[in-house]
Computed example of a mutant assay.
Amino acid sequence: MNSNLENLWEEARELSFGTTPQIERLHTPPTPLQYLRHYLSQNKPFILSASVATTLQWPATTLWTSTSYLRRTLSSSTVSLHLTPTGHADSLTPHPSNPNSLCFASAHIRRTSFSDAIDAINASHNTDLNKGFVAYAQQQNDCFREEYGALAGDCDSHVSWATEAIGSSPEAVNLWIGNELSETSFHKDHYENLYAVVTGEKHFVLLPPTDVHRMYIREYPAAQYNYSEETGEFKLELENPPRYVPWCSVNPYPLLQNKEKEMSEFPLYHNGPKPFEVTVKAGEILYLPSMWFHHVRQTPDNRGLTIAVNYWYDMQFDIKYAYFNFLQSLPAPNEPTSHTHSTNKNVSDGDEKHSEESTF
């Protein structure tokens, strides 16, 4: 089984990317037919580079570099701001009553004015103590059209070549505003994701769906951060009744003091084929195919902000989905069969519909 899976990982890369695998960069938008044939049907990512020929010639690319413009345009808007002590929302953190085990922690969500949200993002800092917070505007679930509608005219409502190829409009359009402290743990989505960076940069670590066993997906108890405005402290509480979330156990950037332990605990990830690492700069679009695992960090602009818009198109639940479900139902090498998990469409391994750049 071990060698068979290793052959699959290598062959999947060679078929998609050749013998020197890297994410392809396009300098002109694909036609709908090119996108359908060469990328969508092959589940193959690419970056559309910033140039005069790209579709990302939006008013947003200049207007959103002004915080005063954003404040003025959204002066009457109430938005959802996600607060965590470290900037790691929808991720694994030490269990509140047993620090030797982990739980899946979701952010505290504060409904606030946009102006207050920007102030909170700018004031964000994390600390080893349980004080201070990191704020991130990452509501998803069509938040751009629901909460930031006043900015709608600054961007395209859809990606035309993707809409024509897929045959439908995006199910959701989301806006992300954060800083360098916000980080998204490994996860996957059941969406075709067109991810456009407007200011700053996004740094993705990518793995194809065939690498599911390298993610060490395990079930963790769900917990929620609660933030006290009075004390400035967080309290992490387990959900009641208990709920368990299948989530990726791997951290691609372990602390130096933890690296040896991580490599020993997750050898299939650390000793397997190198993940793809790509930086998406302002004015560029990443096509992130459905079910690809991705981890996301960011570098802000000179104001300390990173702003992005992404378009979620429904994936086709076709033979690729059946193939992936079969693959992840197989026991992982050197692990007992009890580590296999549900592949339910809405909550499947590493797939919670409320995490950064899309979710499991």
Rank of each mutant, 00 (worst) to 15 (best):
N98R: 10
S101W: 03
L102H: 10
C103F: 06
F104L: 04
A105H: 11
S106Q: 12
S106P: 13
A107P: 14
H108Y: 03
I109S: 04
I109W: 06
R110D: 09
R110M: 10
R111H: 04
R111G: 01
T112F: 00
F114M: 09
F114P: 10
F114Q: 10
D116H: 00
D116S: 00
D119F: 04
D119M: 06
A120C: 04
N122L: 07
N122F: 05
D128Y: 08
N130Y: 05
N130H: 09
K131M: 03
F133N: 08
A135D: 13
Y136D: 08
A137C: 13
Q140Y: 13
Q140V: 08
Q140N: 10
Q140S: 09
N141M: 04
D142P: 15
D142N: 07
D142T: 11
D142V: 10
C143I: 08
F144H: 06
R145P: 13
R145V: 01
R145C: 09
R145W: 05
E147N: 03
Y148D: 07
G149W: 14
L151Y: 07
L151C: 02
A152Y: 14
A152R: 13
G153L: 01
G153M: 11
D154S: 01
D156Q: 06
D156M: 03
S157P: 11
S157F: 01
S157G: 00
H158L: 00
V159L: 07
S160W: 02
T163N: 08
E164N: 00
A165T: 14
A165Q: 07
A165R: 05
I166E: 00
I166W: 03
G167K: 06
S168F: 01
S169R: 06
P170C: 01
A172M: 05
V173A: 02
V173I: 10
N174R: 02
N174P: 09
I177T: 12
G178T: 02
N179Q: 00
E180D: 14
L181M: 07
L181V: 09
E183N: 05
S185W: 02
S185Q: 04
D189L: 03
D189P: 15
H190Q: 04
Y191S: 13
Y191H: 14
Y191W: 14
L194G: 03
Y195I: 10
Y195D: 10
A196E: 07
V197P: 15
V198Q: 12
T199A: 11
K202T: 14
K202P: 15
K202E: 09
F204S: 11
L207D: 07
P208N: 00
P209F: 06
V212S: 11
V212A: 11
V212P: 15
H213W: 13
M215F: 10
R218E: 15
Y220K: 09
Y220I: 14
P221R: 05
A222Y: 15
A223L: 14
A223F: 14
Y225D: 12
Y227H: 12
S228A: 01
S228N: 09
E229C: 04
E229M: 03
E230G: 10
E230Q: 08
T231I: 09
E233V: 14
E233H: 10
L238V: 07
